[in-house]
Design a protein around this nucleic acid. Structure first.
Length: 332
DNA sequence: GCCACGTTTCCTGGTT
DNA sequence: TAACCAGGAAACGTGG
């Protein structure tokens, strides 16, 4: 079973359609997807470019269903375990981080940090792909990079990418915990070792931020200063993504589809959903369904959810519908 | 430090 | 009466 967001949003959307760059590292959480991708990992990326010809922007969103056969053709070209230099938009096709989170492979995880800048003359504006820490980006628990060639070299040049490779050991028992809650991102369940590594990593990020170039340096380079722009979405794990991933988990019984084709779902155990959302956000016991539903109403205002059609027999309570700004909830 | 986003928290009032 | 819904207001955490 393939989910649209898994196949497209995370890997190719921003390549073909720069306007979709904000979903570049969308969560790839289902085990099936990892296995499928691994089996085809050696195929050339050029096949991907051939495969996506003829698709339009809507094919990467939630409006249409692609056949599984077509999806397999597309993902066949998307995976290449090698790290290559990124110098132009098409190079974004390279999978920038590809962890071995499936199967028992000793807990090794390859983490690749990256930063991509597309020259203004090619797109009319700068594009910044999501950085580690975005939704579904499991590199959050990575250790401090061993080889940080991050942007802004000492010679004043501006490298197109930076990356590092690290190994993370999985503590005994974590696999079981993660299997018990497959709808949660990996970073939701961390070992003490990984928590420590995460702190180190965050410290590194803070130090890195302090080294950011000045406005004058960016102007001298003929570039815009990086930063969130109006309308640019956050890369944190959102409530609608949490609910979507819950619905993708066949084992859970706390939320269910009322009409999957329409994106209408119903909360079965409100307190349990709130509790798990609280755990996800490190909010623990403080989260309640009252607060969660308030967030949900705000999300509805923003378009991530929308009103459930009246007079169509849906429950009046605890029933919601995904909105136009959410995606990946419909199965292919 | 500023700013935008996406909540979180608290609240009042209404509905089922 | 409990549980849920609706939305205002302000604060907060995150990340560019």
């Amino acid at each position: 079973m393939f989910y649209r967001s898994d196949l497209f949003n995370g890997i190719m959307a921003s390549t073909v359609f720069p306007s979709l760059a904000d979903v570049f590292t969308e969560a790839i959480l289902t085990e099936d997807i990892f296995q499928s991708l691994d089996q085809v990992s050696s195929r050339a990326m050029s096949e991907t470019m051939e495969s996506v010809k003829g698709l339009n922007e809507n094919d990467f969103l939630n409006q249409h269903v692609l056949s599984e056969e077509k999806a397999e053709v597309i993902i066949a070209g998307t995976v290449d375990s090698s790290i290559q230099e990124l110098t132009q938009p098409d190079d974004l096709m390279i999978p920038l981080m590809w962890p071995n989170v499936y199967g028992d492979q000793g807990g090794e995880t390859l983490v690749v940090e990256y930063e991509i800048e597309v020259p203004p003359e090619e797109t009319g504006e700068m594009i910044y792909a999501n950085s580690p820490g975005s939704a579904g980006d499991i590199s959050d628990f990575s250790s401090e990079p061993e080889n940080d060639s991050s942007c802004g070299g000492s010679d004043g040049s501006s490298p197109m990418i930076s990356y590092s490779k690290v190994e993370v050991k999985t503590e005994p028992g974590l696999d079981e915990q993660r299997q018990a809650a497959p709808y949660l991102p990996v970073q939701a369940i961390l070992s003490p070792y990984e928590e420590e590594e995460l702190e180190d990593y965050n410290d590194t990020v803070i130090r890195h931020k302090k080294r950011r170039k000045s406005d004058a340096e960016y102007i001298a380079d003929g570039r815009k200063r990086p930063g969130r722009k109006k309308g640019q979405t956050s890369s944190v794990y959102h409530l609608w993504e949490f609910i979507r991933d819950l619905l993708h988990d066949p084992k859970q019984r706390i939320i269910k589809w009322e009409n999957e084709q329409e994106g209408i779902f119903r909360v079965v155990k409100s307190s349990e959903v709130a509790k798990q959302w609280g755990n996800m956000k490190k909010n623990r016991e403080k989260m309640t369904y009252e607060k969660l539903s308030r967030s949900l109403r705000y999300s509805r205002k923003e378009g991530y959810f929308e009103d459930v059609p009246k007079d169509e027999g849906y429950p009046k309570k605890l029933c919601f519908k995904f909105g136009p700004k959410s995606h990946g909830w419909k199965r292919l």
